[in-house]
Design a protein around this nucleic acid. Structure first.
Lengths: 114, 114
DNA sequence: TTAGGGCCTGACATCGATGCGAAGGTCAAC
DNA sequence: GTTGACCTTCGCATCGATGTCAGGCCCTAA
């Protein structure tokens, strides 16, 4: 299917679909005229990408994670790192949350004390 | 005092001191030779700016808040909005925290379910 | 043959605090 | 009079997902 159709079916702008491809997240064949040609699986892949992005992962992390999420296992224990990667992300998020809560506390302190 | 001394005394790079000035957070006089000339209060002001930045406020918000924090009250009820502004920031932070925690939950779900 | 809609690449803008480097002026000390 | 430390402004770079625009190719219907 053409990029416009994939965009319509996923609700993701064509600009972003090209971006995901440039980031190595989404493969597309090429028609003889140079147009991108997506297969049916792309719809699922794009939804997975969106879900992971919405979960706060960066495209770089998603590039590592996606092959496992998609169930492609060219090598047997390829996905052994997945757990570590995602746990690392979780830890980073916990740090971000803690930092924000710290800031929030500091700000709340500014309001009450003086 | 010159910018280098202020930088040394506050631990804030000269680059940032100029940036704060450009953002309207920090005033500096000028010596005849064009050099910035800071007064003693600037040390305190810079510390306050850093504290507010570290509390997660943007320079734009700090520009509104700083005159009140500094105790300058050219008009009587100038700082009446301070409470609203900071409470708005608090609410925004709470939203950020909630969004992060939501993402964290989504990610944690990815780890346990499949 | 032309109008119009789809597609292509490439480039610039966003937001914000910050770093870094160039080109050049100032001043004190030697 | 020169070295060296300080200062000035200006501008580019960062990070990341995304919007937008320009210039141009492709294809189909009228």
């Amino acid at each position: 299917m053409l990029i416009g159709e994939l965009s319509r079916r996923t609700g993701v702008s064509a600009r972003l679909l090209r971006y995901y491809e440039a980031q190595g997240l989404l493969d597309a064949g090429r028609a003889p005229n140079g147009y991108r040609d997506y297969d049916e699986d792309s719809v699922v892949t794009v939804r997975q990408i969106r879900a992971l992005l919405d979960a706060g992962l960066s495209t770089e992390v998603i590039r590592s994670v996606l092959p496992c999420v998609r169930g492609e296992r060219p090598e047997f224990d390829w996905c052994a790192d997945l757990w570590d990667i995602l746990n690392g992300e979780l830890a980073a998020m916990d740090e971000d949350i803690a930092a924000l809560q710290h800031s929030r506390g500091a700000l709340a302190g500014l309001l009450t004390r003086p």
